[in-house]
Each structure stands twice: as structure tokens, then as C-alpha cells.
């Protein structure tokens, strides 16, 4: 009896140990994946499929209960619409337009926010000058600028780009400042005692040291911009996913509205996955140090 208990405990201990070991390696993101081999209900794909099945099941039941294809189309109607829109290519055309705007706006935002963040973190006067303006603008939602943007840019591609760049700007800036400010002073001192010039210290220490934090800012910036694009395109654009949603809403074609909404979700999810992978590749040391996750 005692020995039986002992062996069981030892085995459990070993299991826990191996699990926590692998968890650490996997960034503790998928705790179930350890025993994936041979047990499919603990495999990663199965967990994802299960979550989606439950979600779609509930959706279906709600659609049955609402019983109005305009207010709440069933998941199968939406799937049909998705396939139809995919066949004609309309889905991808709009997605491509929106994604292009997203990329342009993120590039603009990064080019402004990251250098500005470095400047503000390293120069007290610059910070004193710019910080109040930033703090004043920050609480103002990007959507608040749409009416004014319509006057300035008119209906077209520029307005959504402006709104997205605006929305992406703040998380990028604040995370850059944070990253630069939290650089380990010792590393700078170490470089000074190696006769490394100020510009080389900036390039080879400050930039990589701030990178994990900038990457976090970039992920938040992406998410905010992608959320804002729809509002901007709903009103201020003759193309893009947001426009398509509004277009089919006016035609009362709810399944197609839902199809475009699903596309927004899918692109957002895939991009974040890609960014996380990029983060892992670019700043592998940050995970070892417990930052940037």
C-alpha cells in the first residue's frame, strides 16, 4: 500500500516536472501540448477546433432563437456568403485594400513614433515639450477625428490611413519611451569603458535594448489600428472591409456583412500570430528575461 502510493507520487512528480520543463520552453502558452503525442484531445489543433465548435454551436442556437436572417444569420448562411464572396474575389479585393492601408499607416506611424520616442526618452527638454501634447491627444479616440478628417481628406483611402496611423502612434510612442528608459545603465557604462562612442552606443545598445518593448508597442498598435480601420472605412471610404460591411448592411444582406466581419477577425488573428512569431525571432533574449511577452 505504502509502496504503491510512493510509486504513484514519484510518477506524478516526474510528470509535473517534465510538464513544467516543457511549459517553460513553450513559453507556458500551451500547457496541454506536452502529452499531445497519442492523445489527440490534448493536441493544440483539437483545442482550437473545440473552442470554435462550441462558439459556432451557440451562434447557431441563438440564430434559431432569433429566427430573423437579417438580425442574426445562421453560421451556415454566413459560410455560404463567405464562399460566394471568395469565388467572385470581392472578399479578397476589399481585404487587400484594407490590409494595404494598414501596412502604410503602420509604416508611417513607426517612422514617426519610434524616433520620437527615442528623442523623448533621451532628451529631457524634448520630453517636456512634447509630452503634454501627447497626453492631451492620447485620450481622444481616433474615431473623433473622422468628421474633421472628412473635411480635410474627403472620402477615399487617405482618411482611414490617417486615422489608423493616429491610433497606432500612441502605443508605439509610449512603449518606445518605456523601452529606452528602462535600458540597463550598466550596459551603457560597460560600453563606455570599452571606448564605444555615443552614436555606437545608441545604435548597438539603446536600439536592441528597447526593441522588445517597441515590439510590444507594435503589436498593440496593430490591434488598435485594425480595430479603427473599420470605423474609418464605414464612413470615409469607397472601398475596404469597412465599406463592404456598410454596403451590404444597406442592402440588408446580413450573411455578407457577417462574412466580412469574419474576415476582419481572421486577418487580425493571423497577423497577431505572425507578429508574435516575429517577436520571438527578433528578440529571443527577451523571453529568457521575462519581458516582452
Amino acid at each position: 500500500m505504502v509502496s504503491l502510493m510512493e510509486t504513484r507520487t514519484a510518477k506524478e512528480l516526474a510528470e509535473v516536472a517534465s510538464e513544467s520543463d516543457v511549459d517553460r520552453k513553450a513559453g507556458a502558452r500551451y500547457p496541454g501540448s506536452v502529452r499531445a503525442q497519442g492523445r489527440f484531445w490534448q493536441a493544440r489543433w483539437f483545442i482550437v477546433v473545440r473552442a470554435f465548435s462550441v462558439f459556432i454551436g451557440i451562434w447557431y442556437l441563438v440564430a434559431l432563437w432569433v429566427a430573423s436572417p437579417i438580425q442574426m444569420p445562421s453560421p451556415f448562411k454566413v459560410l455560404e456568403a463567405l464562399i460566394a464572396l471568395g469565388r467572385t474575389g470581392e472578399l479578397f479585393d476589399h481585404a487587400l485594400i484594407s490590409a494595404t492601408r494598414l501596412v502604410i499607416s503602420l509604416v508611417i506611424s513607426t517612422l514617426i513614433a519610434v524616433p520620437l520616442g527615442f528623442l523623448m526618452a533621451m532628451n529631457r527638454e524634448a520630453n517636456a515639450f512634447i509630452d503634454p501634447i501627447v497626453e492631451l491627444l492620447r485620450p481622444i479616440s481616433g474615431i473623433a477625428w473622422i468628421p474633421l478628417g472628412l473635411f480635410i481628406f474627403g472620402v477615399g483611402g487617405t482618411l482611414p490611413i490617417f486615422i489608423m496611423a493616429y491610433v497606432a502612434f500612441f502605443p508605439l510612442l509610449l512603449n518606445t519611451i518605456d523601452g529606452v528608459k528602462s535600458i540597463d545603465r550598466k550596459l551603457m557604462s560597460a560600453a563606455e569603458t570599452m571606448g564605444v562612442s555615443r552614436s555606437a552606443r545608441l545604435l548597438h545598445i539603446a536600439v536592441p535594448a528597447a526593441l522588445p518593448s517597441v515590439m510590444v508597442g507594435f503589436r498593440i498598435a496593430f490591434a488598435s489600428a485594425w480595430a479603427a480601420i473599420i470605423a474609418a472605412e464605414l464612413i470615409g471610404s469607397p472601398s475596404g472591409l469597412g465599406f463592404a460591411i456598410e454596403w451590404y448592411r444597406q442592402l440588408l444582406m446580413s450573411p455578407k456583412v457577417f462574412a466580412f466581419i469574419a474576415m476582419i477577425g481572421a486577418i487580425g488573428y493571423l497577423c497577431d500570430l505572425g507578429l508574435r512569431t516575429l517577436q520571438h525571432k527578433l528578440t529571443p533574449w527577451a523571453e529568457g528575461m521575462g519581458i516582452g511577452q
Binding site: 550598466k186 560600453a191 564605444v196 555606437a200 548597438h204 528575461m289
Partner: peptide, 29 residues
């Protein structure tokens, strides 16, 4: 006057080789 710090002060984004060669690459030595 080279300094060795208590908590190593290694550059986390540099490999062992690049840490050792940092001063040679970017500094006066």
C-alpha cells in the same frame, strides 16, 4: 581601464562571440 561588473553586464542580444568582440568591433580597442 576595463571594468568587469558584478552582475556581468553582458549584452543579452549578442552571442558569446559578439559580446567578447563588442569593444573590438565598436570601440577604440
Amino acid at each position: 581601464r576595463g571594468v568587469m561588473f558584478q552582475d556581468y553586464a553582458l549584452f543579452p542580444w549578442k552571442s558569446v562571440r559578439d559580446n567578447v568582440g563588442f569593444g573590438l568591433r565598436h570601440g577604440t580597442p
